[in-house]
Write a protein that binds this DNA or RNA. Structure first.
Lengths: 185, 185
DNA sequence: CAGATTAGTATCGACCCGATACTTTTATTT
DNA sequence: AAATAAAAGTATCGGGTCGATACTAATCTG
């Protein structure tokens, strides 16, 4: 009885955020998904700034992503450059304008949420949501897209960090970004 | 620093659920929104089974709702009948088939979530989400769409309940449904 | 070196969604 | 009581999403 309360809450919250985001995007003459893409690029590390990663993160197909990227490029919000090492791969980079709108919208969204949750309750809520998210990701087989910092491949080195998968050196701020290759510790 | 963690979690969870629902709907040859509509009609009371209410609940415009309802009616999942007392309003009713698919999908969705959250943690998570939802609804001015049971208009009567707004008698199970006119106590 | 895999684009069709215009019914005002 | 406003829906159009399919090009595997 009423066992689907969690589901209803999430659905309801989803609809509400959905509508709000649609409004915010519309003010820029953009689509909701476009802001999602910009937000992702703002938070992802250098291994994860490709069309495929965007699609996996947002749950879209390659075709859909390709189309949306074309729009964003046409509006001067990001650039597409072929990767140096792998000719198949495209690297996405936010332009100054793109970074600006992404940052601004992120802050607005965050402000809306901050007003909705007292600080002491927020921590527990975040913990619960994180657990739920991990469990769902495990169940569906999707990538976790966690922060580099929490990855089992991360190694500490003198004066910094290192990715155990690629061998690259990593700066401290970079370990706070989203990585496509992330695997929970 | 990392103050937008809650926002990121919700966004991420949203994308994941979004993709999952899209898959579930696709299996029925339907759109994600269509299942949302069926789910709402399964849970709403008799004051809230109209196109306008659906739109407010899901954050869609009248036009979009009207179109989606046409699809659902054409597939025999619901019926549209003019209201007896007010010639402008249309009453939506799930058909047997509609009720069937709605119930089935609701159970599947719930099952997916249940596997993701241990029972003792679920209660706190639900509480936190509920608070967040109410705060956001208050901030955006949207209707709360709470359960009749928690409404300030509800009155207890000998052998049942009564809605203080319409004066109608209410059965016990009916007080567990969503009401468009709901106002928190 | 021949397949198999991977990253991405192109195109098509169904559909969403907002905007606008419209109809019909009910409320409100004068 | 008549005139006006407001509310509930529908119809239609256009831009855009999204999945499916087909395709190209680059890289990996054997």
């Amino acid at each position: 009885m009423a066992g689907d309360r969690l589901g209803n809450l999430l659905e309801r919250l989803g609809s509400l955020l959905h509508a709000t985001q649609r409004g915010a995007a519309g003010a820029h003459g953009l689509q909701r998904v476009h802001l999602d893409v910009l937000g992702y690029l703002l938070r992802c590390n250098r291994y994860s700034d490709t069309p495929t990663a965007v699609g996996e993160y947002l749950g879209l197909t390659k075709g859909t992503v390709s189309q949306s990227l074309r729009v964003l490029e046409a509006r001067g919000l990001l650039t597409r450059e072929p990767d140096v090492h792998d000719g198949r791969v495209v690297r996405l980079r936010l332009t100054r304008r793109g970074r600006g709108t992404a940052t601004r919208e992120r802050d607005h969204a965050w402000e809306r949420l901050r007003r909705g949750t007292p600080a002491q309750q927020r921590a527990t809520l975040e913990l619960g949501l994180e657990r739920l998210l991990r469990a769902l990701q495990a169940a569906t087989g999707y990538r976790t897209f966690g922060l580099c910092r929490s990855c089992r491949f991360l190694r500490r080195r003198e004066g910094g960090f290192q990715c155990g998968l690629t061998g690259d050196a990593l700066s401290a701020p970079e370990t706070g970004k989203i990585c496509r290759e992330h695997e929970a510790a």
